[in-house]
């Protein structure tokens, strides 16, 4: 009788503690891809885009020098910490935009829209989006345009990184500043076992779910 009671007691504790979660390896097979756009913009009327190749911006909360954000393969020291990741991303973007019928031009050639690519690591990005769009950024002056409201899940992971791709309308400005017309949020980069390959797959998905981006 006593043994039964003990067994029931420990059994209860065991089963109460039992709260299984999905396998972490399965969870990060795919990245989450979020896109949003200004639905008053007719993307078919745009022709020329500006995209700096081989570089991207990188914001990391552990970075002591927040101005030092440029990443490229040929850069030195901290500025090359992402390796050829910038090349992969900008190359894929160029491929997608060219396939959609747009033409890449230089910044001085009066592009219709500018493509801005950056990685944010270890910031509570989703909360920032909810209450202060782009409030986490510094150094590149992209804290303008309009924000997207709505629900974003809050996250609580020790380390995470997201890739952001944004299109700014350079001709129809908002209060004199470039107007954000499309953005893409891809994450998490840190937990992915093969983030370069999965990022490319995710960029492909971003364009698939944004069929309005075509000439």
């Amino acid at each position: 009788m006593k043994r039964i009671l003990i067994a029931v007691f420990f059994g209860s504790i065991f089963f109460t503690a039992c709260m299984p979660k999905p396998n972490s390896g399965d969870l990060v097979k795919n990245m989450v891809v979020i896109t949003d756009y200004n639905d008053t913009v007719n993307f078919s009327k745009k022709s020329y885009y500006y995209l700096p190749l081989d570089t991207l911006s990188y914001f990391n909360s552990t970075d002591n020098d927040p101005k030092d954000t440029l990443q490229c393969l040929k850069c030195k020291g901290y500025n090359s910490s992402l390796g050829d990741y910038a090349n992969l991303i900008t190359g894929e973007l160029k491929s997608k935009l060219d396939a959609a019928g747009y033409t890449q031009v230089s910044a001085k050639q009066n592009p219709d829209f500018k493509v801005y690519v950056f990685v944010v690591e270890n910031y509570n990005v989703y909360q920032s989006y909810s209450y202060n769009p782009y409030g986490y950024g510094y150094g590149y002056g992209y804290g303008y345009g309009y924000g997207y409201g709505g629900y974003y899940p809050t996250v609580s992971v020790s380390d995470q990184a997201n890739l952001y791709i944004e299109f700014f309308d350079m001709k129809n400005k908002y209060k004199g500043k470039p107007n954000l017309i499309w953005y893409c949020d891809i994450g998490d980069l840190v937990s992915s076992p093969n983030y370069p390959e999965v990022t490319l797959k995710s960029i492909d998905q971003a364009f698939k779910q944004s069929q309005y981006i075509k000439k």
Binding site: K29, N30, V32, Y37, D39, Q205, Q209, S210
Partner: peptide, 21 residues
Amino acid sequence: VYKEYFPFNTYTFGSRSLSTD
């Protein structure tokens, strides 16, 4: 414990789309 897996799919809400499993 009840659980269900939904394969990778795109969910669209207004102008916003989200893809995930």
